[in-house]
Amino acid sequence: MYATTYHKPMSLSEAIELFEGSEDASYLSGGHTLIPTLKSRLAAPQHLIDVRNIPELASSIEVTANKVIIGSATRHHIVASSKEIQAVVPALSGLAGSIGDVQVRHMGTIGGSTANNDPAADYPSAVLSLDATVHTDRREIPAEEYFQGLYTTALEPGEILVRIEFNIPEIAGYAKFRNPASRYSMAAAFVSKHRDGHIRVAITGAGNEGVFRWTEAEERLTESLTAEALEGLTIDPSRMMGDMHAPTDYRAHLVAVMTRRAVQNLGGTHIL
């Protein structure tokens, strides 16, 4: 790790002031991507601004009639063990409970994961599939506009993700095939049927542009929300990432299988 200066602001304005007043700064939340990157000397911000103590971001879960609202510094295990979320979107709490391992779930945060937009992260699929709204220190961003490719989001430099507002669906399911080494998603599908009847299928871990909506699957499932409706539907391997663990054709295959399994496991999760 290179030398860096650690800051612990206690308010949003202080955090933004620090960011704007610093030459080369980075926000820090649970640190589960940033800290390993720093340790292997692949990144070298001069200033680390820890946002976890800002009251607006602090660990919080609010469930209303139509929404689940989660503060961005809320750690995965809090979401996973929330009885309120389990009651209304078990696929969301199940997704949180499937991230990494116990240690990761007690440090990693929903805001950190969503702001980082790792193509293999779990949360982006829920944000996109549940038509969530991302609230920042300065505006609201619909999920459709928020994700903009690998590690890229609509967040402007210095903009802080404050909370995420999920729509409570009629039903949703999450299916994930894990990388045998890292246990990140190698292909995962979050399928939601919203209360107005529309279907959202979000795929993470597989696409070469990060999380994406699989609209062909949505069309099929709109006709019939069954695994059978997806029979024969394939996705173009050229849209997939490829690596030593999963070449593009295998990932494309897994996307189709995981989408079927998400449908077969609506109201819960299926983790392989």
Partner: peptide, 11 residues
């Protein structure tokens, strides 16, 4: 080497 960490070396 492609498996330089536990992200890529399966245990």
């Amino acid at each position: 080497p492609l498996a330089g960490s536990l992200m890529d070396y399966g245990m």
